[in-house]
Design a protein around this nucleic acid. Structure first.
Lengths: 201, 201
DNA sequence: TGACTTTCGCCTAATCTTCGCCTACCCTTC
DNA sequence: GAAGGGTAGGCGAAGATTAGGCGAAAGTCA
């Protein structure tokens, strides 16, 4: 992407202005800052910058101009930390205001949120106490997937999901010291499926 | 999203008012605050803000107005995937062009990069084959930290770092079937320290 | 009914687009 | 090395649209 020196100056100015004031400058203000007396000049510069994909503009709108984030930095999304979930026992459905940043390419196709794992019940799946699991909001799961399961409308746990014969479901902890839970399909509501793990040291 | 100076003033005022009082101002209160005598003016401003997606309103409800949280999409950084590292044996210092997105708040203070883990040598630290470890480029490590270690200028491995008496260092795999390696401090070069783990299902 | 919100019409000021015309470089070609 | 051709960078002014305002009247909600 070749920008000319002049174009880079303008780009930098736009960035600083937006950063400081919270809104973009007018074409006249830009011209004034660079000592240009003709609006047409500034307008042409902006058009060039737009064609190079460095800024976006809305047609004929006042100050409707924003910088296109350079490609290197890509978006991550701030997901709500919905609570802590243990595998053995219930949950702390903490309605916290905490959030976790997750890279955009780790998101699922639907609503996605984050839970912090409590306890070592999934230790054999290499998920340890304190890890964050990224959960996709889904009501259906396939065999072997890790699910956030709601039992008897009260207990929420993190388990691996397996269908058994006779319409029953086995919820399997990944810890050989813990026993699986068997439930009727009707008594189980799947809240979501784990699609990623994130750990900070 | 592009706001004009006036719109930003109003937006800021709304934020402060809601923050302080706990509820939004009426249209008349807004007008009064800005010295506007016509409700229509304020109403038009609110409509504009709404069209720009900065506030939400319920139709014809008193004080039914709230700020749309500015999409706090925060940056994630695209880090180079420098290669794959096994714990037991050497490395594949692949000079690949792959990259991984990592949330900005998981970065270290220095240069940071990503390695994909090969093998189960760190399984007891809940790092499994295929996981990505986020590595901060550092030459020093503290006891117990996981390091990328370069031995005899050739073999790179992922191990836990412990200083022993006599100027020696113990590099400990997290797998009871593997033995630790003991090296002289001079023969060891630390390439980086693991500061995070990322897994995708 | 009282407290607010919406709408309608009408203005002015602030801003954005376009058009025509120029000069100075930079790259390519003869 | 000189001559084109193309593009960046500029100037002014005319024409158009949006932003920002005013009052009054009508419509809603609790």
């Amino acid at each position: 992407m070749h920008v000319t020196p002049r174009q880079k100056e303008i780009l930098d100015y736009l960035g600083r202005h937006i950063e400081k004031k919270g809104y973009a400058p007018t074409i006249e203000e830009i011209g004034e800052h660079f000592g240009l007396s003709s609006l047409a000049t500034v307008h042409k510069h902006l058009t060039n910058l737009q064609e190079k994909g460095l800024i976006k503009r809305e047609w004929n709108r006042s100050r409707a101009l924003e910088l296109v984030p350079s490609q290197v930095k890509v978006k991550a999304v701030e997901l709500p930390l919905m609570g802590r979930v243990a595998a053995g026992t219930p949950i702390e459905a903490v309605q916290s205001t905490e959030t976790i940043f997750v890279p955009e390419d780790m998101l699922g196709r639907r609503e996605t949120y984050v839970l912090q794992v409590k306890g070592d019940s999934m230790i054999e799946e290499q998920i340890r106490d304190g890890d964050y699991v990224i959960v996709e909001d889904r009501k259906q799961a396939r065999d072997g997937e890790m699910v956030i399961a709601l039992l008897d409308r009260e207990n929420v746990t993190l388990k691996k999901y397996f269908r058994e014969s006779g319409g029953r479901v086995r919820l399997q902890p990944a810890n050989s010291r813990m026993k699986p839970i068997y439930v009727e399909q009707g008594d189980l509501r799947i809240q979501g499926v784990v699609i990623g793990v994130l750990r900070k040291y």
